[in-house]
Amino acid sequence: MALPKISPYPMPGETDLPKNKVAWTADPNRAVLLIHDMQQYFIDAFTPDQSPVVELIAHIQKLRSCCAELGIPVIYSAQPGGQAPEQRGLLQDFWGSGINDGPYQKKFVDAVAPSERDMLLTKWRYSAFQKTNLHEIMRELGRDQLMICGIYAHIGCLLTAGEAFMKDIQPFFIADALADFSLEKHRLALVYAAERCAVTLTTERLIDSLTQARHPVPGRSEAPCGEGRPGDAAEEPSPLTLQTLRENVAELLQERPSSIGEDDHLIEYWGLDSIRIMSLAERFRREGLDISFVELAEQPTLAGWWGLLSDKQNVRVSPPNYDYYTV
């Protein structure tokens, strides 16, 4: 019941893609990147330094870089190690006990490991939506597109795409940033996705689409991710004030701003949960304030947050990726 040893096979390219049934376009303001199960346990089934692993890792690196530049949230799914049979459920019958409880098998591949600003989703079944709050996270972030890469294409990646479709989330199946048991299984996943639930495309085509969607200037092409245009300057955001901070928090809580005291504990007293704090941190980072979920969670009062944010007002940065957060 262990994973099969996977022989090298050529990574599918543009000319190998099936015809898509729909013509959705990825939008950096609507999309989330899911990096699916890039753990040593799964990657060790492949032959190192051979296709498709070489292309898989290189293309995921490009996608991560593009998402960081465009402010697109990145979520990593990962299966926990040392699961009891009752936690594994029917997976036990098909695959045995899975990842052991040691540190090696469950860790992410170093070349594409998450940063402290990425989100981590603990995953229990094939689909990343099952027994997780991935759907709730996407709703809180106002996102309805899911770009899927990782392993294995015809198992967890494909079923995640199918479930996203059934939740009215547009999946983008990144053909050359996926890997599988064989070229046959890889192609099977691409064909099913293209014909039934997703847009199937290459890393290069997806990055081009995301780049063109970011506020295009008439008569001038956008530079690809990582290649800024000379002379371009971001619009300076309005300064944050204590009152606008209070209004932002009140909006999340659906309360009147005047009812929230500066020293009220926003988690214990007002019930502000982690997902809403994460969405607030994302809003601040879009405005160039380098604040993390952890910083906000450690000082959950208006006074504490204003102290942190006012110190960062004069040190605005380009919007990075999102918080590392276990959900």
Rank of each mutant, 00 (worst) to 15 (best):
A2H: 13
L3F: 07
P8R: 11
G13C: 06
T15I: 11
T15R: 14
N20R: 04
K21Q: 12
V32S: 00
D37L: 01
D44F: 02
A45K: 06
P48M: 09
P48H: 07
Q50K: 15
P52D: 01
I57T: 09
A58G: 09
Q61G: 03
Q61R: 11
Q61H: 02
K62P: 00
L63I: 05
R64H: 08
S65Q: 11
C66Q: 06
L70C: 05
I72Y: 10
I72E: 08
V74D: 00
S77Y: 07
S77W: 07
P85W: 03
Q87K: 15
L90R: 12
D93P: 04
G96R: 00
S97W: 06
S97K: 15
I99D: 04
N100S: 15
K106F: 07
A111K: 02
A113H: 02
P114N: 08
M119D: 01
L120N: 04
T122R: 14
R125L: 09
S127G: 00
Q130D: 14
Q130A: 15
N133V: 12
N133G: 11
M138D: 08
L141D: 00
G150M: 06
T160A: 02
G162P: 01
F165S: 13
I174Y: 01
D176Y: 00
D176T: 02
L178H: 02
L178F: 07
E184Y: 03
V191H: 11
V191Y: 07
V191E: 14
T200E: 04
L206A: 11
D208R: 12
S209T: 15
L210R: 01
R214Y: 14
G219A: 07
S221H: 12
E222K: 11
E236Y: 07
P237Q: 08
P239R: 03
A250E: 03
E251M: 10
E255P: 01
S259F: 09
G261Y: 03
E262S: 12
L266Y: 10
Y269P: 00
R276C: 06
I277K: 05
M278F: 15
S279A: 15
F284N: 02
F284M: 15
G288I: 08
L289P: 05
L289A: 00
V294Y: 12
E295F: 03
A297G: 08
P300N: 10
T301A: 09
W306I: 09
L309W: 09
K312E: 03
Q313A: 13
R316M: 11
P319S: 11
P320Q: 01
T326E: 12
V327A: 14
V327M: 13
